[in-house]
Amino acid sequence: MNRQSYKRDVRPEQTAGMTLIVKTVARLTVGLILIFGTYVVFEGHLSSGGGFPGGVIITLAFINLVLAFGWKPLMGKLPRRRAVLIGSLGISLFLLLSLFGLISGVFFKNVIPRGEAFNLFSAGHILYCNIGICLNVGMGLFAIFLALILFRIEPEDGA
């Protein structure tokens, strides 16, 4: 009796994905993983870290969401087309920073003023390059993951 009423109350998008325990733990930890990924990106010029591992950590946070909740809830917020768009913006930012160097005549010259070392906004364009690489790597790999996950599922769902 109880189980039947429980089943009737459950909305259809909540039945996808894994069990309640996994969903609760994923809801609690995904924010922390995203914060850690952002931290790794932003400290790339101060300590070990950088755009590559930070981008992959952010991708892993989104993959965690997809694995726990199914692919439907995330597709409204971050579909594959938008992920590819953000990745393209990332590599465009990197290329734009490299073209800034042409102002003073040399490709990839660091024209942004370098501040004091050991500060967050120091070392010229390295921080901004890290952000661009993070967007490119993270969203590109997430687009690959979405393409792999939706490979068999999407056509029969659209019917």
């Binding site: 010029h45 070990s48 004091e116 890290n130």
Partner: peptide
């Protein structure tokens, strides 16, 4: 010159 303690990032 680069003002970065991390040599690999530099």
């Amino acid at each position: 010159m680069v003002r970065t303690p991390n040599v690999v990032t530099a």
